[in-house]
């Protein structure tokens, strides 16, 4: 079999050549060099770095806060997407557009805004301070920042899935005697579950790598993984940084794989 099918359109060689060269120079070779760098470490050094209490603490915080943030986004994102797709209310188009704000807003801006808002003198923080709840400069602050930046993912992956839902199917369930709750739980949820999981995974992966907004809400002693890498770089501990980065990258690729699996899974009932 030929590697490329014949076509009357020109420019395949040129465009493909440019694409591959640029991709290699900018992305593939630099990323590969990172893996090479960590491969230059001995296995014991690598293991020591990765299982160092500081690293483990960062991994725990990163995964914990990212999971919590993605869960919050999955729950509220489902409600937001449902509301935006199914109901009509004043200002809906505006609300729909604003959902993308965390994509469009530079992370540093989101970071300082949230830090200010949830600080003990901030608009929200001051109501929580009397109860001993401090959000800015704590792990709760990390969670708030990660929730903010992951917010659009669940909404945006669920919207098309909800729009694709066949109204007839819900009517069929109703005509068979199912209550609205039974229809939601047994018919709608299983149908949109792959999209929900994809959105959850995207939000989770984004949260794992987030740096810009987190640094304003975190403290010196509770670092997320990207902050730890940054510190290691500042101290010229390149090998340590590379080792931690490789672990993070592998984790993100696993999430990516998971997303592809859910996509494939979601097509299994397609005609």
């Amino acid at each position: 079999m030929a590697l490329k099918q014949r076509s009357v359109l020109p420019g395949f060689g040129l465009t493909m050549g440019c694409t591959l060269s640029y991709l290699s120079l900018l992305v593939l070779i630099p990323l590969a060099s990172l893996f090479l760098k960590s491969a230059s470490m001995s296995w014991t050094d690598f293991w020591a770095t990765v299982t160092d209490p500081e690293t483990l603490g960062a991994i725990k915080l990163s995964f914990g806060a990212s999971l919590a943030a993605a869960t919050i986004n999955a729950i509220f994102g489902l409600i937001v997407a449902w509301t935006l797709v199914r109901y009509s209310f004043v200002g809906k188009k505006f609300i729909d557009a604003v959902v993308d704000l965390p994509f469009a807003m530079p992370t540093a801006v989101s970071g300082i805004a949230l830090a200010q808002l949830y600080s003990t003198e901030g608009w929200i923080g001051r109501w929580l301070a009397p109860y001993g709840i401090e959000i800015t400069y704590s792990r709760w602050g990390v969670m708030v920042a990660l929730t903010f930046i992951g917010l659009p993912f669940v909404v945006r992956t669920l919207q098309p899935a909800l729009e694709d839902l066949d109204i007839e199917v819900e009517e069929a369930a109703a005509s068979l005697g199912a209550t609205r709750w039974q229809t939601a739980w047994r018919v709608i949820l299983p149908t949109i579950l792959p999209a929900l999981l994809t959105g959850f995974a995207l939000a989770f992966a984004r949260a794992l790598g987030e740096y810009g907004s987190v640094i304003f809400l975190s403290n010196k002693w509770e670092k997320v993984i990207p902050m730890l890498i940054f510190t290691k770089l500042e101290q010229y501990e390149f090998a340590d940084a590379a080792a931690i980065a490789v672990v993070t990258l592998v984790a993100s690729f696993i999430v990516l794989l998971f997303i592809n699996l859910t996509q494939w899974w979601s097509r299994r009932y397609a005609a």
């Binding site: 066949d166 007839e168 199917v169 009517e171 069929a172 369930a173 109703a174 005509s175 068979l176 005697g177 199912a178 209550t179 018919v187």
Partner: peptide
């Protein structure tokens, strides 16, 4: 749901 009608949809609407 409580009318006890059997309804067959044009595009089947199978789950």
């Amino acid at each position: 749901g409580s009318r006890q009608v059997g309804f067959v949809f044009q595009h089947y609407a199978l789950f």
